[in-house]
Design a protein around this nucleic acid. Structure first.
Lengths: 356, 356
DNA sequence: GCCGAGCATACATACGTATGCACACGGCGT
DNA sequence: ACGCCGTGTGCATACGTATGTATGCTCGGC
């Protein structure tokens, strides 16, 4: 019992297959009468048009790939949620794709095999040639939340430098001098830009960030948790996980315990909050924590995380708009949109203990 | 500049299109020589086989739909993660689909339009006819984590009754007598089964659950948060959100504050933990909280949630195995797998204050 | 009564790949 | 020298839909 095709419907309704195709799309050239007959036949056979046949014929799929990192990262999930709604409003379907770096060639193939009309990529690394490859092959592509230095494709991000500057200024204004930071990978534009701006504003305020007060690693909960433990223990910057000797040696050279820590995203910050709880350090009484993104969880009572809000809904809307425009007209030259960030003051930060 | 097709490759390599098709799949009937020539031509053109053309011809797509609820629910995300890996091992691709109940007809069409070879459905409601429809149309389907009463399709779930019984027994053993519960929707098998077993075991232990101590609602963080607030305030069971009069009246008839609350899943439990923090009630000193699922977040220090562990990795593996088997042989009769749950004792529960 | 206009439908074909089958070629055995 | 077989390739076609074009029909106008 194979699924019914438009030919089956045509036979039952006593018309030709093309007429079925037109009737179901309410083509004005088909008479009311025939439309009704075709619809009845289709319903009685439980006919569902084949998406493969259709897309083969029209060269369009109505699907858009969204390339994200780990699926269990709430930031990506919120982004997907926003994108889903926006794409749907444009009649497009979202296909989520994760991008394991070790086989990005597979990802490229999957994007270029005709299964999607366009791509929104959220995992771009700074040196990645994926955007270039996609653009060269004519696949409409938008980078979201991550940028590359070349202007090859459309890009939507928030102003990471401005946002990180807000966090730094807030810490300075609250009198913090013993400041630490958990940054993201330097291979990403978000990691690089947030770090650079945060350090610049601190330095301009006369409180340069010491290397020993910096941890740099993946945007994961576990790294935030571990990094905060190291910072509290005063482990030196070059102490790597599992290197017990270096860590022990570093403990002796510990500077004063930081009174504030900036985390380059909320996932790291929430990891840090959990790490603080594990280390018995009270937030905000003993430690100020500030994140970046303002994911939904940040507002939950147990975190109550002060953070730099990224306008994710607008960013998603913009990304979808740029993509739709480019699908409609692939010859557009690359555009870049940068939206402003905003500081959200909640309960995880307060004035430094020593501040007068 | 349109993407290259196998015809283009054939022309360049000086062979016929079918030979290209065979050469790229390393068909033994094609000579080493020709394979090399075809590969070179394909590479130089940047040829990527069209998934549409291929699937139209083979009637298979290598794609499996996974129907989940809200994307921001960490339980679904973890499930997707597990499923993704297992499907990949079987050479299958995962396509995530959310299922807005108000247009489940759209979901059905999307599943039957030939874009996927099978479906894993995690959102089934008890009375849903979606599984039946899919099965009737011959789409290999597996229900995961949710069951329906009819044996129409393959089903994989954990033993929700046994698991909820473990939680109830633990609370009784710890001397809790003032017990409350936040249950899931009665329209789901998980909601129904966990509630029924929890109540049965409590009743058998001589501590029947009072209706006023029960809240029943969606499996969301927000509902868990709100429900815990109501339970702490002693709001009556029939007090509905926004019904201020009923709530005020109920406050007078409040029984003793509960010493323990069971939540039908971890998302609700974490909502409850946040609600408790918001209400200034300490966990576990003043309130024991037990969840269900053991999602990754449950182990984070700030939650440290005691919960009933669902063997999600095994469930996912089983679901994929059943689906693969059914894709290979659609005539199999429906099977049902039920895996045991396990109590995970962490810091969110302890003996009742009054327990001797 | 004939012709043109306009409407409804059918015919032919394209989209890109996979596969059953036929066919050409060369080597070997007798 | 002839026929057989195995090997490598091409030919024809199928998959399901959409669309450009041709065709048949009806109706109105003169």
């Amino acid at each position: 019992m194979r699924p019914a095709t438009s030919h089956d419907v045509a036979r039952l309704a006593g018309v030709s297959q093309p007429t079925v195709s037109r009737a179901l799309r309410d083509d004005p050239r088909v008479s009311r009468d025939t439309i009704a007959r075709v619809r009845a036949a289709a319903a009685s056979l439980g006919y569902v048009p084949s998406s493969r046949g259709r897309s083969l014929s029209t060269r369009a799929t109505g699907q858009v790939a969204v390339v994200v990192g780990e699926l269990d990262n709430p930031f990506y999930m919120e982004a997907l949620e926003h994108l889903y709604g926006r794409l749907e409003a444009d009649g497009l379907r979202l296909v989520a794709l994760t991008d394991p770096p070790e086989r990005s060639s597979l990802t490229v193939e999957r994007l270029l095999d005709g299964a999607v009309d366009g791509a929104i990529v959220m995992t771009t690394l700074l040196g990645s040639d994926l955007p270039g490859q996609l653009a060269a092959r004519g696949l409409p592509t938008v980078l979201l939340n991550r940028a590359i230095d070349d202007e090859l494709v459309d890009t939507v991000e928030c102003d990471n430098r401005q946002g990180a500057g807000l966090a730094a200024a807030e810490l300075l204004a609250l009198g913090h001098r013993e400041i630490a930071a958990i940054f993201g990978p330097a291979t990403t534009s978000t990691g690089r830009d947030r770090e650079a701006a945060f350090r610049e504003v601190l330095a301009a305020g006369g409180v340069p960030l010491a290397e020993a007060r910096i941890r740099r690693g993946p945007f994961t909960h576990e790294f935030g948790r571990q990094a905060l433990g190291e910072l509290l223990a005063g482990a030196p910057a070059d102490a790597r996980r599992g290197d017990g000797a270096a860590r022990a040696a570093g403990a002796g050279s510990a500077a004063a315990r930081p009174t504030a820590v900036f985390c380059a995203n909320d996932v790291l910050a929430i990891g840090a909050l959990n790490g603080a709880k594990g280390a018995g350090v009270a937030v905000p009484e003993q430690l100020t924590v500030v994140g970046f993104d303002d994911i939904g969880m940040a507002a939950w009572e147990l975190y109550d995380l002060s953070t730099v809000r990224q306008p994710l809904a607008e960013m998603a809307a913009t990304a979808v708009r740029l993509l739709s425009e480019r699908i409609a007209d692939p010859s557009l030259s690359p555009r870049r949109q940068r939206l402003p960030a905003e500081l959200v003051r909640r309960g995880s930060h307060r004035a430094a203990p020593a501040a007068r």
